[in-house]
Design a protein around this nucleic acid. Structure first.
Lengths: 216, 216
DNA sequence: ACCTATTGTCACAGGTTTGTCACAGGCTTA
DNA sequence: TAAGCCTGTGACAAACCTGTGACAATAGGT
């Protein structure tokens, strides 16, 4: 709260589900920081439901706050229409940076549709520009296949995608085979992994496929 | 009750069968802790009947509380549609952990259908990830055949599966033989049994087959 | 047409998983 | 007691999966 104000933004705060919705309708904020674990919420009105509800009626940017390690939360949150999320605990600087990023993007007129940006842990991936920013700070540009693969994986962070799933995601129903996928994984790894020899993000699940993993 | 509240959940309580059903319909809770030995229940409305009734109308997660040693209860409970159960007496930490696990699973969007997760006593098996968490806390990953075997066994906890049943469950109609099954059982045991020399979970039934047993 | 980046294909190495064989001990039955 | 069956066990081989390097084919821009 202090952090946000200090960065020059106006901030209002709601502490439970109902008042969140009320203040949203009354004040029409330019951006919403939404804590998944809002107190006083029944199952019917948890953070995701609120997110979805707001999104169904407005394009206001939503940033989710979630506790570290709840990988499923993130996937659900993005599916529910959130624009970005931040893992708690977070540094004030990170929070402000994300807010600015989301606002900048919103202003630039890019549609806030799915896959406009995926920011998972240290990896910041922009499918549209086909660019990833790594933890180290450097930015790599991906080829279109690499980009599609990474998008598939990140959209399903923490879930296993079978080889066939990935093949049809990347190459479509007709083309592609497991050999090509292996090569593609390899090439993507050399770009985004710290040490491609010991891949972290793109994890192989023997006999099944691959999964995108979060840093913890 | 205190434990649950302390963990940050909202809790309501019902002390007999009828009020349980009433409160369930009125409050639509996100999770139900159901004591099998509910007082004031006639035979027609025992814990299982309640469980079954609720399950028939809702996907709300249900955790059963049962007194230690009543193995039949557990099997019946799982058959009646419960998601998990906890043996009394239980530690507060365990209770909270189970609640969170069940909620997390439910939230993750995986259909609560068959084989989404099997949590029997100390063994927590996720067929999708092919992972088991042991009592000791460590997690082992299974091969695909091991996983299929364990799934078959756990889905029929307390019941005997003949050798032929298991073979066709694991290898399908065509392939597989008893020799391969013995090897597979052996390999699975070394992974999940405390002391593979004296197997507990996977019990041999001479002349018939194998059965998955619960801890007492 | 030419150059470069991207994508597809091949062959191989290492590890893991699965199948097979041989043997030992226990239990039942004649 | 001996024979026969069933189960558990160890060792080994075959099959499979994954990662890797090199190279050919293709596409896209100039």
């Amino acid at each position: 709260m202090f952090t946000v104000r200090r960065a020059g933004y106006e901030a209002i705060m709601a502490s439970d589900a109902l008042s969140t919705l009320r203040r949203w309708q009354e004040d029409d904020p330019g951006l919403i920081l939404l804590d998944i674990n809002l107190p006083g919420t029944t199952q019917l009105k948890d953070g995701f439901a609120i997110c979805q509800h707001i999104r169904s009626q407005s394009d206001v940017p939503i940033i989710l706050l979630t506790v570290r390690g709840e990988e499923n939360d993130i996937v659900r949150g993005l599916e529910a229409g959130a624009d970005d999320y931040i893992l708690k605990p977070f540094s004030p600087r990170q929070l402000v940076a994300r807010i600015q990023a989301v606002l900048r993007r919103g202003r630039s007129g890019e549609s806030a549709s799915l896959s406009s940006r995926l920011s998972i842990a240290e990896l910041d991936f922009n499918p549209k520009l086909r660019e990833v920013s790594l933890a180290s700070g450097q930015t790599k540009s991906l080829t279109s296949l690499e980009s599609r693969l990474l998008e598939s994986l990140m959209l399903n962070t923490g879930h296993i995608l079978t080889t066939d799933d990935l093949i049809s995601d990347v190459w479509g129903a007709s083309g592609g085979n497991s050999e090509m996928l292996r090569q593609l994984v390899r090439r993507l790894r050399t770009k985004i992994e710290d040490d491609p020899t010991k891949p972290f993000y793109i994890q192989n699940v023997p006999g099944l496929g691959y999964a995108f993993r979060l840093k913890r």
